[in-house]
Amino acid sequence: MLSILFYYHRYYLRSYRYTAPLTVFLIAMFFLYGVVPNPVMDSYAASATLLFLIAAWLCYGFVDLEDDTQQVITFLHSGKLALLYTAKLIYVWLFTVPLSVFAIVYPIIFDKFAYTPSLRQALTALGCHQLAALLGITLAAWFNAKLFRTGLISFLSLCTVLAVALGGQGIINRTFPAMSWVIPPYPAIMYVLNDHPQAELAAPPQGIWYLALYIIMLAVSYLWVMSRRKFDERLK
């Protein structure tokens, strides 16, 4: 696994595909904290949403990065297709870890908040950032060239899903409660960061457990579908 991750790392770094999402992330972070002082948990809610979108962007750019022919060769050398797709998900997640840490630590170090958050608040925010990143990654991984006819269709579909995830609570309120089982449960993160800014809950609310389960189900079903799909030419 480590050798595959290292290979993907060098492949990705030499592609420079990370530059646009990273630049947008940094500009948005500096813009967010451009004026001081800022509310702690509301600011973290904004940066978690930003990371959700950036993680989806990073994953969308990474998942089809490796040349189609090279994917077959890498598979034959590794012997297991599911291992390669697992490594892809893990690699993008690892890429987002420093971004999460930066989003938590930067406003504390540079005194951008109205008050210094407690360790518990910072850790809660870090957990929420990581869940947001993982949800973005596991959603975006599905919108790849093997499952969609063209890049435009996959891109527009991903944008729609991300928008629905962000505005999901409104859709649920205006339609019927069962929609909450289908729509990506991003509002659970907002519930923790916005509605409970004290972040002093004894245990994560039920919505967070459901979000974690949703991410795991997305990842497992993605690995199952992609392993069965093998290397059939793109659908035309």
Binding site: S3, Y7, D67, T74, H77
Partner: peptide, 20 residues
């Protein structure tokens, strides 16, 4: 249609071998 990688041949083969 073997892809034109941004690796040197040695780097590329080292990666493939390590993955094995």
């Amino acid at each position: 249609r073997f892809p034109k990688h941004k690796f040197t041949s040695e780097e590329y083969l080292m990666h493939m071998g390590r993955i094995q």
